[in-house]
């Protein structure tokens, strides 16, 4: 059976920290950073690759189109 691992890359300088991707993530791998970006926003970041399934929900709900989602079949 195929098993997918995913990864999320956020363009942190353009992220406005709206938190919508964090809420949309079914596996809870996204959170807002303690640090802020150049605009003063707590940007979104992936806290670990472990649980990301590459479903792209975060990318879809992102109003600023700053999320790229990757998905790899790691088992076949």
């Amino acid at each position: 059976m195929a098993k997918f691992k995913g990864a999320v890359v956020v363009d942190t300088e353009k992220c406005k920290g709206c938190n919508l991707c964090v809420v949309a993530c079914p596996t809870g791998v996204l959170s807002l950073a303690r640090e802020v970006n150049g605009k003063g926003y707590h940007y979104s970041e992936m806290t670990g690759p472990g649980e990301c399934i590459g479903c792209a929900n975060c990318g879809m709900v992102c109003p600023d189109a700053v999320i790229t989602v990757y998905r790899k079949n790691v088992q076949n």
Partner: peptide, 20 residues
């Protein structure tokens, strides 16, 4: 089983990105 992040973050694995 652990997969390195850099193994996943590759052009061919992109499933969602900003449209051109």
């Amino acid at each position: 089983m652990s997969v390195e992040l850099k193994e996943i973050i590759k052009e061919e694995n992109i499933v969602y990105r900003k449209t051109p």
